[in-house]
């Protein structure tokens, strides 16, 4: 039981990374994309191929996986730029499926027994889950802080403007093309990092695990938690992961069919859309007018400064 809970927390961490990436594309910039499974796939394969065939270490493959996914994000972002809303959604959905199909056709069995991740001579094995939890959630924290900074920077400001109104953004001198592609590349790169961790943990890569449902699940996490809110998407990832392993967790997997979990989170989304369309935590507050420097804000983040409560008059 405890073992299984740990497993869920590991997966939730990996998905939280993906949700952070999706949040950058959908939550901050307002582009409805459905190909995070594709980015995840590229990251996983990059790590598997580099570690197994070229003898790279896990840590060396991590940035390469991120860059490879980022390049893919660029390649997807450029042709789909002119599309909006549901059109973009369908186009990216197609591209995500293309990536999976190509992967399946190149190598239908994928890669097995990829070398494990090492840190200072210590080996992260799938058997010792606590270490892996610490590793993955440390990365979730790092990327959370990074993206929180990004959201409140000049870049984040441009992305918010594009989400709110493209015409107005352009007339204010914002290069819409540049920032849209930028958001795609960043979001995709984090998807690649998540894929890298997935490979490191399971030590296998199989093309059948990058289906369209993965993209939908990641989008659900972002919508469920609250679009444009860093904390919320991580919470969303935890909730969705718990729901999808719920039957196994309560030991009723023989009674409750696997499809039931999809019904449960479909239901959750319907209820949420009726009662709380902004997601559980809602959108993060804008802080562009914040005169504090990045360092001061970082200190404030860890201190949980009291002025936040009293200062809002």
């Amino acid at each position: 039981m405890v073992n299984f809970l740990q497993l869920i927390i590991i997966y939730a961490g990996i998905y939280a990374l993906m949700a952070i990436g999706q949040n950058c594309i959908t939550g901050y910039t307002g582009m409805l994309s459905l190909c995070h499974a594709g980015f995840f796939c590229i990251g996983s394969y990059a790590t598997a191929i580099l570690c197994k065939d070229f003898g790279f270490s896990f840590w060396a493959s991590l940035p390469i996986a991120a860059i490879a996914s980022g390049i893919l994000g660029f390649l997807i972002g450029v042709p789909t730029l002119r599309l909006k809303g549901d059109y973009l959604c369908i186009a990216t959905l197609g591209l995500g499926e293309i990536i999976r199909t190509v992967a399946t056709n190149l190598n239908p069995v994928g890669y097995q027994s990829v070398p494990r991740a090492m840190l200072f001579g210590y080996q992260f094995s799938a058997r010792n889950k606590v270490q892996f939890i610490l590793l993955i959630w440390a990365f979730v924290l790092i990327f959370y802080i990074l993206f929180q900074q990004l959201a409140h920077s000049r870049l984040g400001r441009a992305m918010a403007a594009i989400r709110e109104d493209e015409v107005a953004a352009q007339s204010n001198g914002i290069n819409v093309t540049k920032y849209k592609i930028g958001a795609f590349v960043l979001g995709a790169a984090i998807g690649g990092v998540a894929g890298c961790f997935m490979t490191a943990y399971t030590q296998t890569v199989n093309p059948s695990s990058f289906t369209f449902m993965v993209s939908v699940m990641v989008l659900c996490m972002v919508v469920l938690g609250g679009m444009g809110n860093g904390k919320a998407v991580i919470l969303g990832a935890l909730i969705v992961q718990f729901i999808s392993y719920f039957p196994q967790l309560v030991g009723l997997s023989s009674v409750i069919p696997a499809q039931a979990t999809q019904i449960i989170y479909g239901l959750c989304l319907v209820v949420l859309m009726i009662w709380r369309p902004q997601g559980l935590l809602g959108r993060d507050k804008y802080r562009y007018g914040d005169p504090r420097s990045t360092k001061e804000r970082l200190v404030g983040f860890f201190k949980r400064n009291p002025e936040k409560k009293g200062g809002r008059a």
Partner: peptide, 26 residues
């Protein structure tokens, strides 16, 4: 050159101050 588009195109979910911040993007 600054354009005030037809139908205003304000950033509706942002406050007045944040809208002005956006105007000063450059």
């Amino acid at each position: 050159m600054a354009l005030v588009p037809e139908g205003r195109h304000v950033f509706a979910d942002m406050t007045v101050e944040e809208n002005l911040d956006m105007g000063a993007f450059l």
